[in-house]
Amino acid sequence: MRGSRLLAFTLRPVLLVWALAVLAVTRPAGAQTPTPPVSDDEVNRVAKNLYCPVCENVPLDACDTPACVQWKEEIRTLLAEGRSESEIVEFFVTRYGMRVLAAPPPQGIGLGVWLIPALGLPAAGLWLALRLARWRRPAPTPEPPPEPSLDENARMLDRWIREHW
């Protein structure tokens, strides 16, 4: 349940005053430039995969705090300069670290995130299969229980239901 307007709850009072001032100016950011060279949609497409360090767990495109609005304007500028999406992402990563990414790439300290489930889940499955194989034993009665007839009467039917459950 990401809150798009949620940073406000964690802001310190001083920041808040500043935030209000900036908010008043920047809130209708999209509206300020009537014919923007870079559309909001293009900005959001890049912003969707970025997380600012303050608003944890809220992607940039859904966040309207002053810091995020500023980041989005930066993205707009970079897009206008002709940078590609990956260049822009890299720009933010070098400045703020890997945490700006929605999920870490499978390398360095990010490797553990992916590696453990990728190895652990199949390993657990294999263990389970081996366990089951050992646990199985030949059936004591070779004949499986006879198929109950569906057409006889209600009593038979109830038994059938129970047997199947």
Partner: peptide, 28 residues
């Protein structure tokens, strides 16, 4: 459950062990 647990707590581990916070989000 394990994958969710791991993803939820990995940022805390990485901060404790490597002093770097990560975001583990929807793509994971």
């Amino acid at each position: 459950a394990f994958a969710v647990f791991w993803g939820t707590f990995y940022p805390m581990f990485s901060e404790l062990l490597f002093n770097e916070k990560l975001t583990v989000g929807p793509p994971y």
